[in-house]
């Protein structure tokens, strides 16, 4: 029994990581029908930007600041203007393929210009363990979980309580009508890209001490987050969080009680079952638009 609790806690810690990455997926999908296959790489890159700034001799806090700014510029604004805008009208697929190419390009660029080696990354959360109800949990994992929860609360507040949030929701639900009632649709879409860029930079900051800064670390993350987003519901921020946590826990339980060789299979089977019985995802709402 104590073993089970251990696994649950560890699963939630990993799941929080997936959830944090998955949130961005759902945001981009909602406002602009963008499936970003490079989302994992988006999380990988900011850490390297920060490392590069530190390499020049800047202190860690400044590196974080510049790293976030560069993320907003490259992964938010640049991504939207250079890749998404020209292709958006042509449907989901060409853009999805282009993000796959982007993922390859980002991995190769980091490998070529930084290193193929994994490098350690300083943690803003002290590296240590705390004991909660007799379970040993690392502070870093708690930090990720706390951030994930804060992100959901923050985003929900933004979307439901502020006028910008209402405009973003209107954009997500029906851009044509939103445009007619005077919502600056373009600016709202840009907002979501900037929010996504900010989130991946934060995620990078918290996850990299655990995953290490490595050009390929986005592969595992991106795929897990994608699956988490589908399971939870592609069109809901809360869905992404629930999906992420669920996948994390299921993965751990599968490794302990089913088979370590097939641990990755269990979340996928879960995904297929969910699609059969609740295609919109656990917390998603059915989509009216056909894609």
């Amino acid at each position: 029994m104590s073993n089970l609790l251990d696994l649950l806690v560890a699963g939630l810690a990993t799941g929080a990581i997936y959830a944090l990455v998955a949130v961005g997926f759902t945001l981009l999908w909602q406002t602009s029908q963008t499936i970003n296959f490079a989302q994992g790489e988006f999380v990988m890159l900011p850490a390297f930007l920060m490392l590069a700034v530190m390499h020049v001799g800047a202190p860690f806090w400044l590196a974080i600041l510049i790293g976030i700014l560069l993320s907003l510029l490259l992964l938010g604004l640049g991504f939207k203007l250079l890749l998404v805008d020209p292709m958006l009208r042509h449907g989901v697929l060409p853009l999805a393929i282009a993000t796959m190419a982007l993922a390859i390009g980002m991995k190769e660029a980091v490998k070529q210009f930084f290193s193929a080696e994994a490098s350690p990354f300083p943690s803003i959360v002290p590296a240590g363990d705390v004991s909660i109800l007799g379970r040993v949990v690392s502070l870093q994992s708690l930090g990720v979980l706390a951030l994930a929860i804060a992100v959901v609360i923050g985003l929900t507040m933004l979307l439901n309580r502020t006028s910008i949030g209402h405009q973003m929701q209107a954009t997500a639900q029906n851009p044509t009508v939103a445009r007619i009632i005077g919502v600056p649709v373009e600016r709202m879409i840009l907002m979501t890209f900037l929010i996504n860029a900010f989130l991946v930079a934060l995620a990078s900051l918290l996850i990299t001490p655990i995953y290490l800064a490595k050009f390929s670390s986005g592969e595992v993350l991106g795929q897990a987050a994608f699956i988490a987003a589908i399971v939870g519901g592609f069109n809901q921020v809360r869905g992404a969080i629930a999906g992420g946590l669920l996948i994390g826990v299921v993965d751990n339980l599968a490794a302990a009680y089913v088979s370590t060789q097939y641990r990755a299979a269990v979340p996928l089977i879960l995904l297929i079952v969910i699609i059969l019985f609740r295609p919109q995802g656990l917390l998603g709402r059915p989509e009216e638009r056909t894609v």
Binding site: L82, L83, P86, M87, P94, L95, I97, A98, A101, L102, I104, G105, E108, A109, Q112
Partner: peptide
């Protein structure tokens, strides 16, 4: 080479 390949595919699709 893979970087250039990725860029070429993106440019073509754009």
């Amino acid at each position: 080479y893979l970087m250039l390949y990725a860029v070429a595919v993106m440019l073509l699709l754009i």
